[in-house]
Design a protein around this nucleic acid. Structure first.
Lengths: 124, 124
DNA sequence: CACCTATGTTGACACATGTCAAACCAGCGT
DNA sequence: ACGCTGGTTTGACATGTGTCAACATAGGTG
């Protein structure tokens, strides 16, 4: 699997803040590299199970959720773990182990960055 | 070509306006069906080539573009056509033939709907 | 320590997907 | 009619992806 290391869609900044990589889709045609990064982000959310997991974490109080709280999405536990890892690798989630349980929380600026991508530059 | 299998992420409304199908991801965990619809939309944009094509159309003047204007994305023309069809089936683009050329335009409310999905309802 | 629960990892497998070449269709010229 | 250009469809193929069962690891509790 060491073929193509997908560059992170959002680059971690100095203060733990992430920076959006790309301009709004409506501003100008994305370059190949921009599209590669941005598509990775969309692709991460392009699976129903992952989207439910992401939504479950994002909507949880305090912005974080234990795996045990969100793993009821109709697939096996190992599959849940697999998808959570994909979301983590994609930079959309972070995880932290506290005692017995592992907590996932969303990378807050991700939503803003994606929102910016979809923002209509026009005055719509 | 009327065998639409994937349920449209956005439902066409009375006045040609489309209606968003799902609440913001941060509002509450998506249901299985909601996730299915929404993921289809993200998946459509989850490929670099498709994303470039979509961006190329979205950023084109007058919101539409001839295939010949956007097909320079590094893959064969048939592949471009294939991706454009996928975007069309996903409800993100529409196409119209005018004489020799085929023009694609974006479904305008798609961007707004996806933006809503990513909107942070909290005062964060 | 042994045991149990909560997650993650690995291996295997079926299915979806991206790609191209080649055949095909649709207009526009001459 | 013919050919030519723009686009789509089809067939084939390699790769990617989602899934589970089985195994592994981490951290509690007895």
């Amino acid at each position: 699997m060491s073929n193509v290391k997908v560059p992170p869609l959002l680059e971690p900044g100095p203060s733990g803040v992430v920076v959006s990589c790309c301009p709004p889709l409506t501003e100008r045609p994305l370059t190949a590299e921009e599209a590669e990064r941005t598509a990775a982000m969309f692709k991460a959310l392009g699976d129903p199970v992952r989207l439910r997991l992401f939504s479950a974490v994002a909507s949880h109080e305090s912005g974080e959720a234990c795996v045990c709280d969100i793993s009821d999405v109709g697939v096996s536990q190992s599959t849940v773990s697999h998808h959570l890892k994909r979301l983590k690798v994609a930079g959309l989630l972070t995880s932290e182990r506290r005692g017995t349980w592992v907590y996932y929380r969303i990378e807050p600026s991700v939503l803003a960055a994606m929102g910016k991508l979809l923002a209509t530059t026009s005055t719509a």
